[in-house]
């Protein structure tokens, strides 16, 4: 089962990318080869293997519930591409 152009287009929406026609062709070809390569993991039987999501298996790391410093608003908004004196701004998203 190989990756189709339509699959790739769907993934590009899911990952919020927009690929042009040529890019979509290249991506479909390259992803197809890479996915073809990683398919080899399917040959391993892993029924009794616990997944390993972390490189070191630690647990119960907590911070105390104490107030710390927040950023001044100017500093928080400093890197925002579009803002006003108080908020980040995006095109109207009412009803989305």
């Amino acid at each position: 089962m190989s990756l189709t152009r339509a699959d790739v287009e769907k993934v590009s929406l899911l990952g919020r990318l927009r690929l042009g026609d040529a890019e979509l062709d290249t991506m479909t070809e390259q992803m197809g080869r890479i996915v073809g390569y990683i398919e080899q993991l399917g040959e391993l039987s892993t029924d009794n293997v616990q997944p390993m999501a972390h490189a070191q298996e630690m647990h119960n790391v907590f911070a105390d519930d104490a107030l710390g410093a927040s950023l001044p608003r100017d500093a928080a908004l400093a890197n925002a591409p579009k803002k006003d004196a108080e908020c980040y701004r995006v095109p109207a998203v009412l009803g989305e």
């Binding site: 993934v11 890479i34 996915v35 293997v49 616990q50 390993m52």
Partner: peptide, 29 residues
């Protein structure tokens, strides 16, 4: 972009077990 595409695909519905979860298991091996 290529890696975002690959990762999005590997975690997407219907593929997460086959790719992502399997990779986590092989990681333990």
């Amino acid at each position: 972009k290529r890696r975002i595409m690959l990762g999005t695909y590997a975690l997407s519905a219907g593929y997460a077990d086959k790719y992502y979860l399997q990779a986590l298991k092989v990681r333990r091996l």
